[in-house]
Design a protein around this nucleic acid. Structure first.
Length: 110
DNA sequence: CGGCTGACTGCGA
DNA sequence: TTCGCAGCCAGCC
């Protein structure tokens, strides 16, 4: 598992996040085989913030908080994008019980 | 090579 | 429920 490969896997999972859903750094890390490197997931997204190919705004922490919004063009862009997709919020955090998406749960589809 | 930081998470008080 | 500590690994100086 090379570092570049790690990033690739992160992007791969993030891109599989369906519209109107979100997932967590830990869930992605675990899905790609790096449960202990949840922070690395967010770090990987840091390199693609602004890349339309990667819906990095659909990735939040386990509490649903938009911890990475500060890395977007504007601190409100992340939430704005999510709300435009139908994601609802509980205060300043995403309602995980309604929008949490588990990576790999749809793997059996194909 | 060593020290500090960061888009995280789990456990204990 | 809220706050603090430890583990993790990559990037920068």
């Amino acid at each position: 598992m090379n570092k570049d490969d790690f990033y690739r896997r992160v992007y791969r999972v993030v891109r599989r996040i369906p519209t109107g859903k979100v997932t967590t750094y830990g869930a992605i890390a675990e899905q790609i085989g790096a449960r202990s490197s949840s922070r690395m997931v967010g770090y990987a997204l840091h390199g693609v913030a602004g890349d339309m190919d990667i819906p990095c705004h659909r990735v939040v922490n386990r509490n649903g908080e938009l911890t990475g919004k500060m890395h977007f063009a504007t601190p409100t862009l992340m939430r704005d994008l999510l709300e435009s997709e139908g994601v609802t919020f509980r205060g300043d955090a995403v309602d995980m019980k309604l929008h949490f998406w588990q990576p790999g749960k749809q793997r059996k589809q194909g």
